[in-house]
Computed example of a mutant assay.
Amino acid sequence: MSDLHPPARRDGARPRLRRALLAAAVVALLPGAAAADITIGLIVPATGSTAALGIPVKNTATLFPEEIGGEKVRLVVVDDASDPTTATTQARRLVTEEKVDVILGSVMTGAAIAVAGVARESEVPQLALSPIDLPAGKDNWTFRLPQNVTLMARAVVAHMKAAGVKTVGFIGFSDAWGDFWLRDLKALADDGGFRLVAEERYARADTSVAGQVLKVMAARPDVVLVGASGTAAALPQLALRERGFKGVIYQTHGAVTHDLIRIGGAAMEGAILASGPVMVAEQLPESSPVRAVALDYVTRYEAKFGANSRTQFGAHGWDAVQVLNRVVPAALKTARPGTREFRSALRDALESERDIPASQGVFNFTKDDHFGLDERGHVLLTIEKGQWKLLK
């Protein structure tokens, strides 16, 4: 009988337990009450023609924090194999299977453009690791971490103008990266006071540019701009120097890696490159708003991966963390991770948060500007005795 009719003091315990469980269930439904992982999808070219750019980002991901805004982070890293079609497939998988709250990537221009299409269709914020141009109205969910090509091109053209350059030859990739630089070089030619006298292209995987270089040299330009990225940017410069070109050779920020110096050797001496500040973090003035973040990243990264292993591309991945550190707490005020509302809140916070210091500049995204960097996001470098030297 005692099992069927427990003492009165135990009867009172059951209602209290039921009330406690009910209260816990209600609290779990309230914003901010339940723990939820923030799921970040990272798409990088870990293999293929652009792996030299993607691997530093993948390495940087090992430095990502375990929590942002007090919530645990779940990071899913996938390889796009330097292929836009694969990038699309991977982005769709991240959205449908992994239920990501935000996508980082890709580094390769064509792949990043492909991911932007998935981000727009799925309404998932994308922090692109390539400075991609998108048609008006097609970048509502895409925010770029690298510097706008136009911003960097203006810095290069200003240096040409100050040096009295009158004729320029161009040799660049026969893809979107080359297109962006050739477009801006043409658009800025009048302001720069020069004429574009040669225009040659090559594929990322090409092993020779002898024909293109001969055509450029036949035009006798004062200087040459190489519109390429990664180690493939060394190919035209090597060929130009081998054939006796004595003028200044300019390179883009896509080429600023220590591997460029390693592969190009003495032929790279004197090149002038637009770059993000992180590559010369130690040379930045104490007054620089990015110096502290840049030095922090360089210290962490090179302690793990070796001296002179830093790259701009890895730093863009680190800057994604700086941006998320600011916008995630703002989004958490109104929604929980894993929901459509949270993704929308992230996008809104990206457009409204101001003055986010990072290793490559200070971000101020707005509704009308999803690049977000200004003059604080670039420097000019040269290569002197196999080392980067800050020009300004």
Score class of each variant (00 low, 15 high):
residue 350 L to Q: 10
residue 350 L to Y: 05
residue 350 L to D: 08
residue 351 E to M: 14
residue 351 E to I: 13
residue 351 E to H: 10
residue 351 E to L: 12
residue 351 E to K: 11
residue 352 S to Q: 14
residue 352 S to A: 15
residue 352 S to H: 10
residue 353 E to W: 03
residue 354 R to T: 12
residue 354 R to E: 12
residue 355 D to R: 05
residue 355 D to L: 09
residue 355 D to P: 13
residue 357 P to T: 05
residue 357 P to Q: 01
residue 357 P to D: 05
residue 357 P to W: 01
residue 357 P to S: 02
residue 357 P to V: 07
residue 358 A to G: 14
residue 358 A to F: 02
residue 358 A to K: 02
residue 359 S to Q: 02
residue 359 S to R: 00
residue 359 S to M: 01
residue 360 Q to I: 12
residue 361 G to M: 04
residue 361 G to K: 02
residue 362 V to H: 03
residue 363 F to A: 08
residue 363 F to K: 02
residue 363 F to L: 10
residue 363 F to H: 06
residue 363 F to E: 11
residue 363 F to I: 13
residue 363 F to Y: 14
residue 364 N to C: 14
residue 365 F to W: 11
residue 365 F to L: 11
residue 366 T to D: 07
residue 366 T to Y: 00
residue 367 K to F: 01
residue 367 K to P: 03
residue 367 K to I: 08
residue 367 K to R: 05
residue 368 D to K: 10
residue 369 D to E: 10
residue 369 D to F: 03
residue 369 D to S: 06
residue 369 D to V: 04
residue 369 D to G: 07
residue 370 H to C: 09
residue 370 H to K: 06
residue 371 F to L: 03
residue 371 F to T: 06
residue 371 F to Q: 07
residue 372 G to F: 06
residue 372 G to N: 10
residue 372 G to E: 11
residue 372 G to W: 03
residue 373 L to A: 07
residue 373 L to W: 02
residue 373 L to P: 08
residue 374 D to K: 00
residue 375 E to Y: 02
residue 376 R to K: 03
residue 377 G to A: 10
residue 377 G to I: 02
residue 378 H to S: 07
residue 378 H to Q: 09
residue 378 H to A: 05
residue 379 V to Y: 01
residue 380 L to G: 08
residue 380 L to Q: 11
residue 380 L to M: 15
residue 380 L to F: 09
residue 380 L to E: 13
residue 381 L to E: 11
residue 382 T to Y: 04
residue 382 T to N: 09
residue 382 T to Q: 08
residue 382 T to C: 09
residue 382 T to M: 07
residue 383 I to G: 02
residue 383 I to T: 08
residue 383 I to C: 04
residue 384 E to I: 11
residue 384 E to C: 07
residue 384 E to Q: 15
residue 385 K to H: 14
residue 385 K to A: 15
residue 386 G to S: 11
residue 386 G to R: 04
residue 386 G to K: 04
residue 387 Q to C: 00
residue 387 Q to E: 13
residue 387 Q to A: 06
residue 388 W to P: 01
residue 388 W to A: 03
residue 388 W to N: 04
residue 389 K to E: 15
residue 390 L to H: 06
residue 390 L to M: 07
